[in-house]
């Protein structure tokens, strides 16, 4: 959607390591941005940042896992590659469970990292696309009136009982009114059938 180059963000408390890695990646033509700690990264990088994050696992203050947790809650689309000086299996499991795409143990072969970065970039673009789609749907849904939203809710939560009569008895209104609301919903969201509607909003539940 935009032509902004993808950025590789590096968060590592060890300046020497961070600078060396930044330099090496820059030389390969990547846009690199380094931060000495997690808070500096949060302050300096917006939620819409694109690219990937190379995150040191053990850091003073907010550590890698905490930062990951924070980004997840922000619905960030930055894929995270963990690197650790003394990472063990338990740490890597935790990180991966929380959404990290990889966990590298220092010192690692730089080619492996570059490979991961490229993969992460692809994942990042997919994530961003999905996120954009979700945002679009949410915008459309926000156009619904309160009663229309009630009807949509009922359709999504009770996919087997979607007749006008059933919905009307459930909400205490006339089936005719339900028909009108349904028509409005299809018009606002831009779908022609109830199936389409369900496919669009169902996974969001």
């Amino acid at each position: 959607m935009t032509s902004d180059p993808l950025t590789v963000f590096i968060v590592d408390d060890d300046d020497d390591v961070r600078i060396a890695l930044s330099r090496s990646l820059s030389k390969r033509g990547m846009q690199v941005e380094g931060f000495g700690d997690a808070q500096a990264f949060l302050d300096g990088v917006g939620e819409d940042a694109r690219g990937c994050l190379i995150l040191d696992y053990g850091m003073p203050g907010m550590d890698g896992l905490e930062l990951q947790d924070h980004l997840v809650r922000q619905d960030s689309t930055l894929p995270i590659i963990f690197v650790s000086g003394h990472g063990g299996i338990p740490e890597s499991v935790r990180a991966t469970k929380a959404g990290a795409i990889d966990f590298l143990e220092k010192p690692f072969d730089l080619s492996v990292l570059i490979e991961r970065i490229e993969a992460a970039m692809d994942i990042g673009s997919q994530l961003r696309a999905a996120k954009a789609h979700r945002q679009e749907l949410a915008e459309k849904r926000s156009l619904l009136t309160e009663r229309e939203e009630q009807v949509l809710q009922h359709i999504l939560t009770h996919p087997a009982r979607t007749s006008s009569k059933e919905i009307a008895s459930e909400l205490g209104i006339s089936p005719r009114t339900v028909e009108i609301h349904r028509g409005r919903i299809q018009q606002k969201v831009g779908v022609k059938t109830m199936i389409e509607l369900y496919e669009l909003f169902g996974p969001m539940q």
Binding site: D14, A20, L21, R23, S24, K27, R28, G85, H86, L110
Partner: peptide
Amino acid sequence: ASGLAHELNQPLSAISYNVDAAKITLEE
């Protein structure tokens, strides 16, 4: 060993990255 590994890995990593950057620079 574990503590040393962590402490030593950092400079070793830095060396490794710098060598890589140097090699690219040399090619440039």
